[in-house]
Structure formats: structure tokens, C-alpha cells
């Protein structure tokens, strides 16, 4: 996601392309580092126990929940948050799709939903099966409604925008794949 393709320095965490020092206190979660220290408030704190997915970010392209992750564990890694997705050319296509498909109401879960969906798309592309994949040995898994629903089940939306969220994700990734 960042223009800089070289690895982050061992003693720093690269966040949206900028290197930051690892916090001195190892108790600081990646989520709290983002929000409290770096003022990157796009990533949201919902349950703070890994159940809601609002704090989902990408670490070296993999989606994780930043609340259950100690920041110090990510030294040398590259983190992408919602703030790192848009470019000067405009919104990330998935951000645009969320607007077009009414993929949110209050918006609190949206940054986590979008980061999660980006991670999900790369998992699908490399053939990671899911709980609802009929054939585990299949090389190609179609991004069906059921597949996306299952794969996004770690992100809750209390407004009930799930159908819009899935439509936005399908609109961005499934149609491109078809």
C-alpha cells in the first residue's frame, strides 16, 4: 500500500509509509499507539477484545485486529490503516463503493470493514478457503455472496448495513474477477 517498498527499520513501525518509534511501554496495543500517540483516529476501538473488528488494520498486507496486538510486536512491520488508503487521485475504489452501496450508516465500523475487506480480497486471490468453501482443493474460489458474508463475519455493524457492505465488496472485487 505504501510507495516505499523497502522493509521498515527493525526498531520502527512503518505506518502508512512513515516510520515511528516502537513505544517504550510494551503494554501499548497497536490500536492505542495509532489512536492515542499518533492521532490516527480512523481506526476505531469498539469492544477492545477482538470480537467486533472495528480496529482491523493491515500488517504487511494481512488483516488483524489491532486491539489484541501489542505495538512492540510489530517492530519492522508495515501497517496500513484507513488513513493510508486514499491517494491524491481520490478515494480507494472500495471507499467509493461503500458510498455508492450505502455500506454504512453511523460509520463507526467502516474503517475496520474496509481494511478487513482489502485483506479478505488478497486472501481470496491467493486461494485461502473459508468455512463455506465447498471444495477445499479448489484452486479458484469465487467471491460469492456467501463467501464474502462468511469471510467478513469478524466485522460487526450495529446499524445493520451488512447487505450494503457486501454489495460494495462484491462490486469492487467480484465484478473485477468475473
Amino acid at each position: 500500500m505504501t510507495a516505499d517498498r523497502t522493509a521498515a527499520p527493525a526498531a520502527a513501525i512503518r505506518i502508512n509509509g512513515v516510520d515511528y518509534p516502537v513505544p517504550a511501554d510494551p503494554r501499548v496495543s497497536l490500536l492505542d499507539l495509532l489512536r492515542e500517540t499518533l492521532n490516527l483516529h480512523g481506526t476505531k476501538k469498539g469492544c477492545n477484545q477482538g470480537a467486533c473488528g472495528a480496529c482491523t488494520v493491515l500488517v504487511d498486507g494481512e488483516r488483524i485486529v489491532s486491539c489484541l496486538s501489542l505495538a512492540v510486536q510489530h517492530a519492522g512491520r508495515s501497517v496500513t490503516t484507513i488513513e493510508g488508503l486514499a491517494s491524491e487521485a481520490g478515494l480507494h475504489p472500495l471507499q467509493q463503493a461503500f458510498i455508492e452501496h450505502d455500506g454504512f450508516q453511523c460509520g463507526y465500523c467502516t474503517p475496520g470493514q474496509i481494511c478487513s475487506a482489502i485483506g479478505m480480497a488478497s486472501e481470496l486471490q491467493r486461494g485461502v478457503p473459508s468455512h463455506v468453501t465447498p471444495d477445499l482443493a479448489a484452486d479458484h474460489i469465487a467471491p460469492t455472496h456467501d463467501e464474502i458474508r462468511e469471510r467478513m463475519s469478524g466485522n460487526l455493524c450495529r446499524c445493520g448495513a451488512h447487505n450494503g457492505i457486501i454489495a460494495a465488496i462484491r462490486g469492487t472485487y467480484a465484478e473485477a474477477a468475473e
Partner: peptide, 28 residues
């Protein structure tokens, strides 16, 4: 869960892992 040998030779293991937690938690 995604390893080809596990998916083909030990499907019960892939299936069990994929039935647990969320994708984010499984990545961690």
C-alpha cells in the same frame, strides 16, 4: 488452513481451523 498438503491430505484440519474465530484472529 490454506496449506495445499493440509487441504488435500488432512481436510478435517483445514475445516476445523476455518470454523474457528474470525479471519483476523486466524491471521494472528
Amino acid at each position: 488452513a490454506e496449506h495445499p498438503a493440509v487441504r488435500r491430505r488432512y481436510p478435517v484440519l483445514s475445516r476445523a481451523i476455518l470454523a474457528g474465530a474470525s479471519a483476523q484472529i486466524r491471521n494472528m
